[in-house]
Computed example of a mutant assay.
Amino acid sequence: MKNFIKYLILNNKILNGIVTYIYHKLWLFDIYRGFSIPFSLLIRNVKIRLFPEGQVAKILFMKKFEQVEIDFFSRLIKPGMTVVDAGANIGLYSLIASKLVGDKGHVYAFEPSVETYQRLLKNIQLNHSKNIYPNNLGLGDNLDQELKLRQDVGFEDAERYLVPANFEVNSELSNVNSIEKEESIKITMLDDFLEKSGVESVDLLKIDTEGFEYYILNGARKILKSSDKMIILFECTELGTQRSNTSQKAVFDILHELGFNLYYWNIQEKKFSSDLEGCYSSGELWACRSEAQLSGLIC
C-alpha cells in the first residue's frame, strides 16, 4: 500500500503538487516554531500576528481554521453592530468583527489566559482597532467563583478548559489527562459586565470556551432575553461539556427556554438544518429566534 501511494504521488502531477505544497507549508511552519519566530498573515483584510508555539497558529497557517464559520460570521456582521467574543484567543473573530462593525460598532472580547490575552492586545494594536474592548476575564454564572484554566498533557493551548478550583475532572473522559499547566483566572457574568458598560442589546455572540458554554449562557440570561435579533455562534460537544460537569442537553435546554432555535450547517445538503441528532453531532452551532436570520448567508 505504501509503495502504491508513493507511485500515485510521483506519477500524478496534481496530487504531487498538493503534497509538495503541504510539505513546504509544514516545513516552513516548523522553522517558525523551532526558532519561536512570530509571523503575520492577512486573513479577511485583518492582519493577524501568529505565535508558532500556539495551536491556532498552525491551523491558520494551513488555512484550515473554521473556514465555514468565519465566512458566515463575516457575512452576518453589519456596520454599527455590537459583538461579544467569548474565548477570543489571539483575536481573529474580534478583529474581523472590528473591521465590519465600523466606527459606530463595538466588539467586547474576553480572553482569560494571561499569555493569550497579551497576544490578543498585540493583534489589536497591529490593526489599530479602536472599537475592540479587550478583557482579561472569563465568563460564567458566578461572580465570586475561583476558576482554573487547565491544559492537559497531550493537548495544546487551544484546548485549555475552565474548571472550578476544587472540582475533580472525570479522568476517564478521552479529552482529559494529567495536568500539564494551569492558571487561576478572574471571571465575570456577561449580564453584570454589559449592564455596567451600558450595553442594552447584543447582535452577535460568539462562544468558543471548550465546554463552558452552559455557564456563560446562564450568566447572560438578561441580555439573551432583551436581544431579540441576537445570533449566537458557538462550539458545543458532549465531551467538552462533560468535562465541565454539564451536558449538551443542558446547553440546548437553556437556549430553547430563552426562545432560541438551534441550527447547524449541513455540508451534504448545503443548507442550515435543525434536526436534534444533527445538532448533537455537529459541534459547531448557530442559535437565533428565526431561521430567516440565517437565510442571507447562503449564496
Rank of each mutant, 00 (worst) to 15 (best):
V56G: 01
L60Q: 12
G105C: 07
N89Q: 07
Q118S: 15
A97L: 02
P112E: 14
M81W: 01
I90L: 13
V107F: 05
K99V: 03
A86I: 11
G87S: 04
K99F: 01
P79Q: 06
D85S: 06
V107P: 08
M81Q: 09
G87D: 04
Q118C: 03
K63Y: 11
M62D: 08
I77W: 06
Y117V: 08
V84Y: 05
S98Y: 10
M81H: 07
A109V: 09
V101N: 02
T82F: 03
A109S: 15
D71R: 11
L100W: 02
V114Q: 14
N123A: 10
G102W: 03
E115K: 15
N123I: 07
H106D: 12
R119E: 15
G102R: 05
H106L: 14
G105T: 08
K63D: 15
L100P: 00
G91H: 05
S98E: 04
I59A: 04
K122E: 15
D71L: 12
F72C: 03
S113A: 13
S113M: 05
F73Y: 14
K78T: 13
P112K: 08
I124K: 09
D103T: 08
E111G: 04
V56K: 06
I124E: 12
Q67K: 13
V107Q: 10
R119D: 07
K58G: 00
E53W: 10
Y108E: 03
G54K: 14
I70S: 06
L60S: 07
P112L: 12
F73P: 11
V56Y: 02
F110A: 10
Y108V: 12
V68K: 15
D103C: 06
K63V: 08
L100C: 00
S74Q: 07
S113H: 09
G54L: 13
S98F: 01
P112H: 10
L76E: 08
V107R: 05
Y117W: 08
T116Q: 13
L95T: 11
G91W: 03
V83W: 07
A88N: 00
G54F: 08
D85G: 12
H106A: 14
T82C: 09
V68D: 15
G105Q: 01
V114L: 14
L100Y: 11
L100H: 09
P112I: 14
D103S: 12
V83A: 07
S113L: 07
K78G: 02
Q67G: 03
K78H: 11
L100N: 09
G91Y: 12
A97K: 04
A57T: 02
S94M: 03
V84E: 08
G87I: 06
T82Y: 00
L76A: 01
I77F: 03
G102Y: 05
N123M: 09
I77K: 10
F65E: 10
E111Y: 10
F72N: 08
K104D: 11
Y108A: 07
A97D: 05
I90V: 13
I59F: 07
I96Q: 08
A57E: 10
A86N: 08
K78Q: 14
T116H: 13
K104L: 03
Y117K: 12
K58W: 00
L120N: 13
P79D: 13
I59Y: 04
F73V: 04
L95Y: 06
M62I: 08
D71N: 12
A88F: 01
L121Y: 06
A109Y: 04
Y93P: 00
G54D: 14
V107M: 06
I90K: 05
K58R: 14
G80P: 06
P112D: 02
V56H: 03
D71Q: 06
L120H: 09
R75W: 01
